[in-house]
Amino acid sequence: MLDRLAISMRASHVLAILLLAAALCLAALGAALDDSFYLRLGTEALIFAGLALSVDLLLGYSGALSLGQALYFGIGAYVSALTLMTVPSFWLAMAAAGLATLVAATIGGLIANRVRGVYFALITFGMAQVVAKVVYNTRELGASDGMIGIPVVQIQFGPFAISAGNPVGFFLIVLAIIMGLYGLSAYLLETPFGRVLTALKANERRVPFLGYSVWRARMAVYVFAGLVAGLSGALYPVLRGFVSPELMFFATSGNAVISVILGGVGTLIGAIYGAVLLVILKSIIGSWTEHHLIVIGLLFMLCVMFLPKGLVGFSRPWIERRIVRVPSQEVTASAVSPAIAKSRSAS
C-alpha cells in the first residue's frame, strides 16, 4: 500500500524517467550531429544538478538550509583533480573524492549541527567561505588561478574504456552517476531512516520523544549530502580539465539553492530540473547579454512569487493523481497533494 510520501516519490520518478529520456535524445542527437558544445553544457548541468540534489536532501527533507554546500563540491573537485594529476584513474579519483568528502562532511557536520535554522545557514556559509579563502591563498593548490592541465583520462569499464574527452561517452557516464545518486537518495528517503528526516522537518522537537536521536539523523543526512556533493564535484575537473576556488564560493552554493527552489524543494528530481534549467538559462541569456544575472534574478523572483513550490512541486500533483487513479477531482486533490511540499525555508 502506497502512502502519500511514497506516491510523491513515485511521481518524482516519472519525472526522472522523462528527464532521462530527454537526456538520451540529446546524446543521440549530439552523436549524430557530432556536437560537443551542447553535450558538454549538458554534462556541466548534470554535475551541478548533483550539487543541487545534495542541497535538497538537507533542505527539502531534514529542513536544514545549507548556504555552503559548494564546500563539499569543491573538496570533491580538488581531490579529484589532485588524484588525476598523480594517477590518471577516473575511478580512483572518484573514490578519493568520496572518501575526502566523507571525512570533511563529518567534521563540518559536527560543527554545523550544533545549531539550527538561520544559524545553521550562517555556519555552513562561513565554513565554505573559510575553506575557499584558504584554498584561494594556497599556492600548492594553484591559489586564485586554481589548477589547470588535468589530463584527459580513459574511463575503464572492465575490458572497455571510454575517453573522458568523448562528449557523448562522458555525458552518458555523468548522466548515469547523477541519476544513480538520485536513485540512492530516493531509496534512502523511502526507508524508516528517511522518514525520520521528514519528521525532523515537520516537528523536530517531537522526534526525541518517539525515541529517535535528532543529532544522529541530522549528522547522517548531512554526511550523505556532503558525499553526494563531493562525488558530483569530482566529475567537474574530468569535464573541464581545471579547478578553481570559485567552485567553493558562495555563488556556487547560492546557485544550487536557487536550482532547488526553481525545481521544487523536497522533490529531489526538482533539484535536477532546476539545475539543468539554470545552466541552460545562463548559457542562452549569457549569449544575448552580459547582464544575465539580472535576468536570472528576475526569473527567480517570479518563480518564488508565482510558483512557490517550484516547477516540480507545481506539476507533480497532476502526476500523483494519475498514479493513484482516483477519478474524482476533489477526492484526489485532498488525498495526494504532497505532504512534504510545504516548502518553507530552514527553521
Binding site: D3, R4, P192, N203, A339
Partner: peptide, 18 residues
C-alpha cells in the same frame, strides 16, 4: 504535538517503527 504535515498513518508508523 504531532507531525501536522504528515498523514495520520505516517504519524503512527513513525512511532511504531521502534
Amino acid at each position: 504535538n504531532l507531525f501536522f504535515e504528515l498523514t495520520v498513518a505516517e504519524n503512527l508508523r513513525l512511532a511504531a517503527q521502534l
